[in-house]
Design a protein around this nucleic acid. Structure first.
Lengths: 413, 413
DNA sequence: ACTATTTTTTTCGAGCCTCGAATTAAATGG
DNA sequence: CCATTTAATTCGAGGCTCGAAAAAAATAGT
């Protein structure tokens, strides 16, 4: 329950709703906002003129699209691109990417450069990031808005407050603080989030029909991650970021996981697990962490040519994923699933056993009824998720910052 | 985000907050309410006098407790017991219990009588319930309030709307509608909920320190159930009621579960599973569903005397439960756990392997750090959960029903 | 060219609601 | 019996939303 008592909280809430409409639709008239929110035309008029004064939105003259109709034309309103800038960043095993977007969501600068995470010391993570963001900002023309927020997506575990990478597969260092360094460098709020959570937010934003209030995004990569949305809210841990789907127990006392335990889903479905099984290396053998994409392609090729071990490797991966999903479905009923990352290239070899495991474990669910879609490239999704997160936070802040309404009276006639 | 636009929504919200304070503390002064809610004294005065007019609350004269202090004494306010009645019911395998409480939460009538669920036809479930509630109401003196709500707790799966028992271990019939029959019979809103959810709510209400915003209640009985609270909200399925914790996969292709699948947690930790393992009956043998408490006590006795199979039975149960809990902890970080039901009598035999499994699977969590408490008797908890649910719904309805404030002017002097 | 019509947006007054200040109420202490 | 202290109520100010009326800005028709 929202905690509000005074009546200007009503104004804040209505500002929020109006900004939300503007965030969803590029150009909307006051009329449209009024219909969408259920607020009266007078209220919409009052709030939008406030937002115009604050230069949060702009009104677009002319450029009327569509048939000319009789009557006073609707004035289209839009978020003011120059109201702010947000920086989104993705730090991965081998690359670092930064995107700067304006307040209307358009990308205005992009950098994607190599970064050797394994060889980097703990202080290099924030430092490289600060450098890259600075470089991206330097490319902007002087007229652009001010940077207002930074959002970073990384693999691994972060704390719910978004201050640090508690653990990440891309480095052996723990507890690398990011938030504070970024905030000190740029003087604006920053957060670090789990990549899978960002992917889920991006999908929810991209296709709210399919990825509505309940769905999961599963990242199939060297490891296995999940971003889970339930009731329209991202599920995070109580203290740490993510639903560690990859480390659910699939098979007690089973295959060795790179986390050191046995029988995790990842120990069957991660790249290293598939590689290990396909090369018949024994489920207790140490996970390799330097498997090239070409090697995975080789296994797919072998499977295509009927190699029994390769086929079994993918089948066991599918079974582990399916069992894990079935467990999720037992907890909260079935929901659509997005598979993301390069692991989806082998979807053809995985799907059968995955669906069988879902069906096996939960007979109330026809295994084939689950909607599964694949997105091979995770990076743009992570980036999009970071951007939308930053923008929505900004919207929230703007909605809340309602200065006491002051009318200015002048003596002049 | 709460959807509110008009300013009387503020009043509704503040009514809600004041009612919430009154629900938590038996006798509170306006002063205290003002401090607790942060609302001004004048607002509290206005709203409480409204609530007094509506006879939702009463003001207690005299009966001052504590030291007499200088100054005008605080007037204690309380919820008006006669404002309403709510009926709570628990329908189990062998008994049906009904409790009627007044609006202040005091039990005013109770019935607990035998009911043979296995032999009952589908229509007997609502019918027996209606009879028992009627009988309970008949014992009340005429001055008592009006029945306003009915809340039923049952084992098994219900739909999120609370209309029907979709599946329950106490009967072979599916999809037994309860809500409509009860509403038709008594003319007030009714709901049917999963028993474990009610247990979780009761614990949250009883001991908000220990069972705060994140915890789980696990029912150890013939089957295994879970009520899960995250971020202060009960987790339910998308369509059906409950976190089917008992049917998470513990061991793929493992022991036969009474649900027909293999390897569920319940197939290791339910009474029938412990019995099966202790009697060395083979993990594929059909579950017995008529195991008496005495038989379970016998197994505990045997374990106490060193019987290897009995000890193994409990140890395997603990491992299955621990693995399941570790999976939950991987999803949302560790949280306190309440074990509920007669299965907790064997906690001494279960704890070791349970904690080992938690530690095994999640090394970040010292297995012994998880707070586990036992509540052998589940029935009063289910009942309490039903009552508090009904009362809170009533509070919500009363908070919302703010008639347009009408001052009555009379001509008389 | 000019007026009627249509549609959108703004302005204005009424009605709620909360708050702080002032007032009233109800007790104790000397 | 009056001063003091604390609680509760009353009253006016200010903010907010809403509906009605007015103003603005276009087209349609003569």
């Amino acid at each position: 329950m929202v905690d509000f008592g005074r009546s200007d909280d009503v104004r804040k809430s209505n500002r929020r709703r109006i900004l939300s409409v503007l965030r969803h639709h590029a150009k909307v008239s006051r009329k449209h906002i009024s219909q969408e929110t259920g607020l009266s035309a007078s209220t919409v008029s009052a709030i939008t003129s406030e937002l115009l004064d604050e230069a949060v939105i702009v009104s677009l003259q002319g450029a009327e699209d569509g048939a000319l109709r009789r009557g006073r034309p609707q004035v289209r309103l839009s978020l003011n691109p120059n109201a702010a800038l947000v920086a989104s960043a993705v730090q991965q095993l081998d690359r670092i990417a930064v995107t700067v977007c304006d307040y209307a969501g358009k990308t205005v600068a992009e950098i994607d450069r190599p970064f050797k995470a394994r060889e980097a010391g703990p202080e290099e993570f924030p430092r490289t990031l600060i450098e890259t963001i600075s470089d991206a900002l330097a490319t902007l023309p002087p007229g652009a808005g001010q940077l207002e927020r930074i959002e970073l997506g990384v693999q691994g575990i972060t704390d719910v407050e978004g201050t640090a990478m508690l653990w990440s597969p891309i480095t052996r260092y723990r507890n690398i603080g990011m938030k504070e360094a970024l905030e000190d460098a740029f003087g604006v709020p920053a957060r670090v989030s789990n990549d899978c959570c960002m992917i889920a937010l991006a999908l929810h934003w991209r296709d709210p029909e399919r990825f509505a209030d309940n769905f999961a995004a599963v990242l199939l990569s060297h490891g296995i991650g999940m971003g889970l949305m339930l009731n329209g809210e991202l599920v995070t841990g109580i203290r740490s970021s993510a639903t560690e789907f990859g480390h659910l127990s699939h098979m007690p006392r089973g295959a060795l996981c790179r986390c050191g335990r046995s029988g995790c889903i990842e120990a069957y479905a991660g790249d290293y697990a598939i590689y290990r099984r396909a090369t018949n290396a024994g489920s207790e053998s140490a996970p390799r962490n330097d498997i090239a994409q070409a090697e995975m392609s080789g296994i797919m090729e072998a499977a295509k040519n009927g190699d029994a071990d390769s086929i079994a490797a993918f089948a066991e991966a599918g079974e582990a994923l399916g069992t894990g999903l079935a467990n999720m479905f037992a907890l909260v009923d079935p929901f659509p699933v997005a598979l993301v990352g390069h692991g989806t290239r082998a979807y053809g070899f995985i799907e059968g056993s995955l669906r069988r495991a879902i069906g096996d474990i939960n007979p109330y669910v026809s295994g084939s009824g689950i909607e599964i879609s694949c997105f091979p490239d995770e990076k743009p999704l992570i980036m999009e998720g970071c951007t939308i997160t930053a923008l929505l936070e900004l919207d929230e802040e703007i909605a809340r910052s309602t200065a006491p309404h002051q009318k200015i009276f002048t003596d002049a006639v």
